[in-house]
Simulated assay, not measured.
Amino acid sequence: MRFDSTFAGAPADVAAAVAAAQDAGYDGLTIAELRHDPFVVATLACAVPARLRIGTGVAIAFARSPMTVAQSAWDLHRLSDGRFELGLGSQIEPHITKRFSMPWGQPAARMREYIAAVRAIWAAWQDGTRLTFRGEFYTHTLMTPMFNPGPLTVPPPRIQLAAVGPLMIAVAAQAADGLIVHPFTTHGYLTEVITPLVERHLSGRDRGAFELNGQVMVATGANEREERSAVEEVKAQLAFYGSTPAYRPVWEHHGLGALGDELNRLSKRGLWHEMAGLIDDATFDHFAVRGTPEEAGAELARRYAGRFDRLAPTLMGPHGPALAARVIAGARNAPHPGRVTPTGPRPPE
């Protein structure tokens, strides 16, 4: 199991984040699409000499044409000498239609075709084949030499797909190179629902070549006061996620469907503080880990080594590279059969 740091800050701060992640012992840096364009941020990250894998976690696919995404990823992979991975996500309908003013419909089928279109564009550049992609949602049939960036000296980027529902998980298993699992996921839901779905839909593909990428919230701190504060922050985040109807299957898996309904009702009234108060310690422990940095790291390893191939611990509350390094060291030094060992990024295949 390898560890990724997450970055959602401004472009001007990403070079420092790359250095801090490397110093803390992370294996990669994933860049979220929130207030800033992830490809702009990733460009600056890929330009920093480092051993880290750099990826988008995630870029919103349906806000962009497959051609623009293919070109950005191609350039970043070349810039980083094969260290870039393309993480895609669909977002939800209101953001696609109201924020980006782009079409929506049949998101799983659209995403399957989107990934196929990106791969077809890459094949035209890499192999010199004629671009003749025609689908229900996307058509790409023109590529003149003036617009062809030419082949890479390393294999094309791998594609990771974020998914929550069974249809999109199936698309990830069948069309992508890995699945990015939402942080609103429990160990039970991972092992009893998500992993069996992935294995069912790999359809003979090598599981060893397919990545399961996890995101887990961690409540820790330099002292007990900071840890308690981080626990409350995690509970507030869980309440926010849990108020979304799309995530209700996770609640239902643990017999907590009524909690999801109540959180949704309170969210519509803007009662955010009351929502966090509904997340008790038992519910917290389904989703997140807590303790000293060493204890939290050991618990991450106990739960997820052998389950996730890569893990992005989300440290809540104030923290820095030194605290993150202690969490990762705690995971790597944990005495258990699935013990994780420090490694560099996976070399290009």
Score class of each variant (00 low, 15 high):
129 T>S: 14
132 T>H: 13
124 A>R: 01
91 Q>Y: 01
120 A>T: 10
91 Q>H: 13
65 S>L: 02
65 S>Y: 05
77 H>R: 13
84 F>P: 04
104 W>Q: 10
114 Y>T: 02
120 A>K: 06
63 A>K: 04
74 W>I: 00
80 S>G: 02
105 G>T: 04
67 M>Q: 12
97 T>S: 13
75 D>C: 08
86 L>H: 13
86 L>T: 03
78 R>G: 15
90 S>A: 15
116 A>G: 07
140 H>A: 14
102 M>D: 03
138 Y>L: 04
137 F>C: 01
141 T>G: 13
136 E>L: 07
120 A>N: 11
110 R>Y: 01
93 E>N: 08
76 L>N: 00
137 F>P: 02
65 S>A: 09
76 L>S: 03
123 A>V: 00
81 D>K: 15
65 S>D: 08
83 R>S: 01
101 S>A: 14
125 W>R: 02
93 E>V: 11
61 A>M: 13
84 F>Q: 05
96 I>Q: 05
128 G>Y: 09
100 F>G: 02
108 A>K: 08
68 T>S: 15
121 I>F: 10
73 A>L: 12
82 G>I: 02
133 F>I: 09
84 F>Y: 12
59 A>L: 08
124 A>H: 03
87 G>K: 07
115 I>E: 04
70 A>Y: 09
73 A>M: 09
133 F>T: 00
138 Y>F: 15
66 P>W: 01
